[in-house]
């Protein structure tokens, strides 16, 4: 029998089961009622104002990839985390950990990209920090951003969906993960797949101003759509049903996934969000978000804490949480 895992492995950072176990170990030690909610951003109340506060670190490799770079990602990642709380993001902090030897032009290029994306998202970088570490202590550059936003939405956006909610996604999945993989591994596939990385705050704002019946907003980053849906089913103590044929995946992404043995439902996104809203408002929200959005499923009282995928050929199966890294297959 194999012994308990004693060391942190890469799978502890992939958004799947092991990462949840690690988070739980830390949460127990640091517990308070705000942290315990474990949403991407915390909701704070200060003198009657509701604020959303979030932090995230960016370690993407390669630093520059089709559709984005670490700087753009560091802005939109945190902007999106704040947006998923139903907040309007306003201010970001910015910290660099830089490996000695990094060329100035690289850091300047990243800073320019940060400036561009912050402008696009309408947020200000208001404070920052730089640390330089010896060669080998980090891989070129890591970035941390934290952010603050204000919440004006009358209801609380939480991790809990409600019975009767429909699930809407704003576009096609798995593009960020596959673009990074293709760039990182030098697979040699000439592909037009670009990361979907973008700030979602304006799309979310349009959804929020269309209906007061939104219960959950979530950006399915690491672990992909399947993992995000599982987390919501678990937190809500309800079932989720999604329809395979409604989930948008670009053909190029599907093909690359199929060559490498990846399931797009578990591949990371950086410019997608899912919105749980009362079924009666679903079509209006879909229109408000944009033409690429789709209603992909609903919340059910059956199959509690599980996600059921209705397959293309009319069968059904459980869509489980990601256990370990998806590995490329060999034949």
């Amino acid at each position: 029998m194999k012994a308990e895992i004693r060391e942190i492995t890469l799978a502890h950072g992939n958004g799947g089961k092991l990462m949840h176990e690690l988070i739980e170990k830390l949460r127990i030690r640091l517990s308070n009622n705000i942290l315990d909610e474990l949403t991407d951003a915390a909701e704070l109340r200060i003198k009657g104002r509701r604020l959303a506060f979030s932090t995230d670190s960016y370690v993407v490799k390669p630093l520059f990839f089709p559709g984005g770079d670490i700087g753009k990602l560091a802005v939109c990642g945190t902007v999106n985390d704040i947006s998923m709380k139903g907040a309007k993001p306003l201010f970001l902090s910015l910290s660099f950990i830089i490996e000695e030897g990094l060329e100035f032009k690289v850091i300047e290029q990243i800073a320019d990209s940060i400036k561009k994306e912050a402008k696009k998202a309408g947020v200000l970088i208001v404070t920052g920090d730089i640390k330089v570490v010896e060669k080998g202590a980090c891989d070129k550059v890591y970035i941390n951003t934290s952010g603050i936003g204000v919440i004006d939405y009358p209801k609380r956006i939480s991790a809990k969906a409600r019975v009767g909610d429909a699930i809407i996604i704003n576009g096609s999945i798995a593009e960020h993960g596959m673009a990074i993989l293709n760039a990182r591994e030098n697979l040699g596939f000439k592909s037009a797949i670009k990361s979907d990385c973008k700030s979602l705050n304006f799309e979310v704002e349009r959804a929020l101003s269309t209906s007061n019946n939104i219960s959950v907003l979530r950006d399915p980053t690491r672990g992909g759509l399947a993992t995000a849906l599982n987390e919501i089913a678990e937190a809500s103590n309800l079932g989720i049903e999604v329809y395979e044929k409604e989930i948008p995946v670009k053909r190029s992404v599907l093909k690359l996934c199929s060559i490498l043995g990846f399931d797009p439902l578990y591949v990371a996104n950086e410019g997608k969000f899912i919105c749980f809203v009362n079924g009666k408002d679903a079509k209006r929200i879909k229109r408000a978000i944009g033409p690429k959005s789709k209603i992909i499923g609903k919340v059910t009282t059956t199959n509690k804490r599980e996600v059921v995928l209705k397959t293309r050929i009319g069968s059904g199966r459980i869509l489980p949480i990601l256990e370990t890294d998806q590995l490329p297959r060999i034949c």
């Binding site: 399931d263 397959t311 293309r312 050929i313 069968s315 199966r317």
Partner: peptide, 16 residues
């Protein structure tokens, strides 16, 4: 073949 095993499970063919 393992690829078939996975495809069968993924699409829920057995249930049909």
């Amino acid at each position: 073949c393992g690829t078939h095993t996975m495809a069968i499970a993924r699409s829920g063919i057995k249930k049909l």
